[in-house]
Amino acid sequence: MATAAFEEIAETFEFLDDWEDRYRHVIELGKAMPAMDPALQVPATKVEGCASQVWILPQIAGGRFDFQGDSDALIVRGLIAVLHALYAGLPVAEVGAVDAPAELARLGLDAHLSAQRSNGLRAMVARIRDSAAAA
């Protein structure tokens, strides 16, 4: 069910043996992501439950889901980029069917993130799913 962009990340992770290299790759994904306009970083787009500052602004066009996101932490910004690869471009009706924990487990993220980061990641996934369900 994963998008081609997410599959590309998963394939890259298969080639990176060291977790430090994987973390660096996630950070690079975040750095490559377009910055979110600071004017959109408001309480309505802030994701609660994250240790870092995180903002997600869902966007639906032509029945397809997308979002802008940003964080003040590089690794979290990278996690947002991973989630963007997982969800962006999907039909809105399919967003809720994505088994995000299973897909992210393919990357090994579930075993290598701190409890706080894992909670934040779950909060971001919940925001994405809830936004799609409300559309």
Rank of each mutant, 00 (worst) to 15 (best):
L57Q: 15
E20V: 12
E94Y: 03
A93N: 12
L57D: 11
F13G: 09
D66R: 14
L107S: 05
V82F: 02
G89F: 02
P34T: 13
Q116F: 11
G120H: 03
A102L: 10
N119W: 00
E7N: 10
F65S: 08
R77P: 01
A73C: 11
G120K: 06
L109T: 08
V26S: 03
A133F: 03
M36A: 10
L109E: 08
F15S: 13
W19G: 09
A134W: 02
Q41W: 02
G30T: 09
A100I: 06
M124N: 06
V98W: 01
V76H: 08
L74S: 15
N119G: 14
T12L: 00
F13N: 10
D130L: 12
A32N: 15
S131E: 08
H25K: 09
V82S: 09
M36L: 14
R77K: 15
F13W: 08
A5H: 06
V76D: 06
A51R: 14
G78Y: 04
Q53V: 12
A134Y: 02
A105Y: 00
E11L: 05
W55H: 12
Y23S: 08
L121M: 11
L121A: 07
L113P: 02
D99A: 13
D110C: 05
L104H: 04
I80N: 07
A88Q: 14
Y87N: 03
A102V: 09
G49I: 06
A39N: 09
E7K: 04
I56P: 03
K46Y: 06
Q116P: 00
W19V: 10
E11I: 00
A85G: 01
G69P: 00
M1P: 13
H25E: 13
A32L: 08
E14P: 00
D66I: 01
S131Y: 01
A97H: 07
A123K: 07
R127W: 01
I128Q: 01
A100Y: 01
E11M: 01
K31W: 02
Q116M: 14
T45D: 04
S118N: 13
M124R: 03
G89R: 02
L104Q: 04
A2V: 15
L90T: 10
A73W: 04
I9E: 00
S118I: 05
A126K: 12
A85H: 00
Q53F: 12
E28P: 02
V82T: 11
P34E: 12
I128H: 01
D70Q: 03
L121T: 10
G69L: 03
P101T: 09
G49E: 01
D110A: 11
A35S: 12
V76Y: 08
A126R: 12
E28F: 03
A132P: 04
